[in-house]
Design a protein around this nucleic acid. Structure first.
Length: 457
DNA sequence: GTTGTCTGCCCC
DNA sequence: ATTCTGC
DNA sequence: GCAGAATGGGCAGACAAC
């Protein structure tokens, strides 16, 4: 049994406890008047302080020496220490956005498919780059360090930049897929060894020339951003943005984003509730991707052919399933992905019960999958599930459409989740290998997709 | 040296 | 990453 | 509405096995 007692999982709970403890042991000052619930207020203060300075070695001593009520003064944003990146909430369509933000000025930006980065530039010219999870990435991106140092304007002596690092082909002047970005080396990278270039797509500024901007409105922060850097193709660009509240215009912008190899849009208010909220998935930022929308985006009908026992709250039911598409030519089921999300507890219980009676001792001879995949149980092919995905990718392990796109690699799904059970389909009516290959080819990265160069007339 | 397997306060 | 659920 | 807990693909690195 490996019980990893590790702080960080129930972080919010721990911070709450810390805040309450601080109130009970408070001996420095009394809570400000006008406070209804000192306990709740203290929790807020501690959480706020931590989000801006996530260092227990600073927070706890500050609590002990100067008390909770002074914490906003004793623990504030510090250059060189990463703050939690502001997150966005999924949204189902343009109409939901227009409705939620009516009477409010808001902006839409491209959501680039790369790696989030928070770049700190200190007065002494040193640079630190942090990942979405506050990992120190500086050694992975010496090219980014050089680019920001070169492209900041001379008036800029310090800054914190929020941006997306995206793989980029500077000859063809186009964005490359996330899968290409992830092939970059991760440690002690030297400039001359870099094979995959990145372009910085900047969208926010949290600090400039000694001035914290977190509590400023986006309008102000963006102004600071635009005035602090020179753009340069293939190296540093501001995220494409429009300010509009017109449904059609936003819809067109979303299409443009997808055409431009982006995942979708991020929508942000400019003035109202427009401060930078570290780590919070508050309503302030929304994300819109095609695969969130009903009846649009890639949807496939797939057959569960195996499963894995669940853990934790999934103990006693299956926790994940291996899915396959059907290859009509070879009359075989080819693995395409595992799936473990999108099930309500009731549906998961149902499916587990139903498939438990379809367990077979060995995989069928007509199941095609990698030997490295070792499910706990195999099934007779009996059900068809509708599954949604953000993307189709060339896979090192799965076998869907093998031989069509690539001679010996199959296709898999990015972010697969269950939509519903297709009671009306038999396994042989599942998505075919040809259909999978076709869906892969028609993605915007891949060569001949654009025009209506398609079949019949 | 090569190949295989597993892990990551991983990235998405 | 996505999704669901208890509070 | 938020925090937490289930779960996905896939990469470089680390390390074990050969």
């Amino acid at each position: 049994m490996q019980a990893k007692l590790r702080i960080g999982l129930a972080e919010q709970t721990l911070l709450a406890a810390l805040g309450q403890a601080a109130v009970y042991s408070e001996k420095h000052s009394t809570p400000p008047p006008n406070i209804q619930s000192p306990l709740e207020e203290a929790v807020k203060i501690v959480k706020q302080a931590y989000s801006v300075l996530p260092v227990y070695d600073k927070i706890v001593p500050a609590l002990l020496s100067d008390g909770v009520w002074n914490l906003p003064n004793t623990c504030s944003f510090t250059l060189g220490v990463p703050v939690g990146p502001m997150l966005a909430k999924p949204t189902k369509g343009v109409s939901e956005i227009v409705q939620k933000f009516q009477n409010t000025e808001y902006t839409c930006e491209f959501k680039y498919d790369g790696e989030r980065a928070q770049i700190h530039y200190l007065e002494d010219g040193s640079v630190e780059i942090y990942s979405r999870n506050a990992e120190r990435n500086t050694g992975k991106f010496p090219d980014v360090v050089a680019a920001v140092s070169r492209l900041k304007k001379s008036s800029v002596g310090s800054f914190v930049l929020d941006c997306e690092l995206v793989a980029y082909d500077r000859e063809k002047q186009k964005i490359l897929p996330f899968q290409v970005l992830s092939t970059r080396a991760r440690k002690n990278v030297v400039m001359s060894d870099i094979k995959v270039n990145v372009c910085i797509y900047a969208f926010d500024m949290l600090y400039l020339n000694g001035r914290p901007l977190i509590q400023e409105e986006l309008k102000v922060r963006r102004e600071c951003l635009y005035e602090s850097f020179e753009e340069e193709a293939g190296f540093f660009k501001f995220a494409s943005a429009i300010t509009s509240n017109d449904i059609d215009e936003i819809q067109k912008f979303l299409d443009a984003a997808v055409d431009g190899s982006c995942e979708g849009l991020i929508i942000k208010t400019m003035n109202k509730d427009a401060t930078y909220e570290p780590s919070k998935r508050s309503l302030n930022w929304l994300k819109l991707k095609k695969d969130y929308m009903d009846s649009i985006g890639d949807s496939l009908d797939l057959v569960p052919i195996a499963a894995f026992h669940g853990r934790g709250k999934r103990t006693g039911v299956y926790g994940a399933f291996l899915l396959a598409c059907y290859d009509n030519n070879n009359e075989e089921y080819q693995s395409i992905c595992k799936i473990g999300t999108g099930f309500s507890e009731a549906v998961l219980e149902e499916r587990s019960a139903s498939l438990r009676s379809k367990v077979i001792p060995k995989p069928k001879s007509y199941y095609r999958y990698a030997e490295t995949i070792t499910p706990d149980v195999w099934f007779e092919p009996t059900e068809v599930w509708e599954v949604k995905a953000a993307d189709l990718t060339i896979s090192p392990v799965h076998r869907a459409a093998i031989g069509i796109i690539d001679p010996d690699k199959g296709i898999s799904l990015r972010f697969p989740r269950l939509v519903r059970v297709r009671e009306d389909k038999t396994p042989e009516q599942a998505s075919s290998s040809e259909q999978v290959a076709e869906m892969y080819s028609s993605q915007s990265h891949n060569q001949s997709n654009n025009q209506d160069d398609n079949e019949d007339d």
